[in-house]
Design a protein around this nucleic acid. Structure first.
Lengths: 198, 198
DNA sequence: CCCGGCTGCGTACGACCGTACGCAGCCGGG
DNA sequence: CCCGGCTGCGTACGGTCGTACGCAGCCGGG
């Protein structure tokens, strides 16, 4: 604020990863202001790049958002796949699922906000639906390491639903720990869904 | 378009329900353009009221959105409660749940968009979380007519998750019918979740 | 009838937006 | 060295936004 007439930032001719910084900054801005409050100017400021870079590197907000959310979805997918591949058997897979639903590590407020913003975009535009479809496909595939396809699908849906409920139940973002979410309930839920009725 | 210089709409002094019309129009605009594309001007045009009415009846977009989504949540809650109270026993309740997940009647594209927009707002602002909390409480209460509290909660989560997956799976809004969603899967899911393991 | 006050609206203003356009500054070939 | 071209950016423009402000038009008391 009030930083003189024109700081005249040194021209940085070669700044590889500038595009990447913009994409990351875009996600930050979305978390802070929502998609509706995300503008070229705000992202540029957050990424510390000149406004002109926005239209140079991206054809518009749509492309930027698409790339940003693609990256986000990949990040979350990777995390999920790693967890599932680390599980040695079905029991561990179940526990991993429970841990992911109840843990703040995976379901931080940031993730909740980004996920819902993405779903909202996907609900309206097919281009974003491609992103969520790929994400869901990877999730299901990861779950199929330990569960049959139908169960995998149901577990996936259960994670979705419980995560949302947990997010909306929690009045504030608690600094640490269990967020008051009932672990026993989640264990029960996972048991029911993964129990083969046949 | 091109309707003369100034139609000079007759001054309507007493127009009860103008506020209501604005709220309804707001939901329409949100469906069409998203919360990010919802402005006083667009809502005013959709509701056929002068721009000035916006700030007269509402302190700002936030209040308008809050009222609009409160109304929306109540509408959906009512629908759900009615369905549940119409079910005579557990079996009918189960079938009703399956029907709601698979049917387009309840889960139209409009509902999907509005629900996700609401969740997105709720993920960020506590004021909107109050709306979703009330909604969820009513849903659970309705389910508790037929299921024990834990099961009710799980069924609620399952509806949420399956609805989302269904929404994102569906590439387009199909004109009629089942949307290609696997009814057998949903039946299976509901059976698993409502099966008492004890 | 007359008129003060209040309800409701038309409008104009300043802020912020996306983006087209033109010009720096570097880089390779001659 | 010289210079054409291309990469990347600063800026200015047209448009949309929310909202403050002032003025119509009606309504009740005298």
């Amino acid at each position: 604020m009030a930083d003189g007439p024109a700081p005249r930032r040194r021209t940085r001719r070669t700044d590889p990863g500038r595009r990447d910084r913009i994409i990351d900054a875009c996600l930050d801005v979305v978390v802070a202001n929502g998609v509706s409050g995300t503008s070229h100017r705000r992202v540029a400021e957050a990424a510390d790049v000149p406004l002109g870079s926005m239209t140079y590197h991206f054809t518009g907000m749509d492309e930027l958002l698409r790339e940003a959310f693609t990256r986000y979805a990949r990040t979350v997918s990777d995390r999920f796949e790693r967890r599932m591949s680390e599980a040695a058997d079905v029991g561990e897979a179940r526990r991993a699922v429970v841990a992911m639903i109840t843990s703040d590590v995976v379901t931080s407020r940031r993730d909740l906000v980004l996920t819902h913003e993405l779903y909202t975009l996907a609900a309206r535009e097919p281009a974003f639906r491609d992103i969520t479809n790929a994400w869901m496909a990877r999730s299901r595939h990861a779950l199929e390491r330990h569960f049959d396809p139908t169960t995998a699908r149901l577990v996936d849906a259960l994670i979705e639903g419980l995560t949302i409920h947990r997010a909306l139940d929690t009045p504030q973002d608690p600094p640490g720990g269990g967020a008051g979410y009932d672990t026993a309930l989640v264990v029960d839920a996972v048991e029911r869904v993964t129990a083969d009725p046949g």
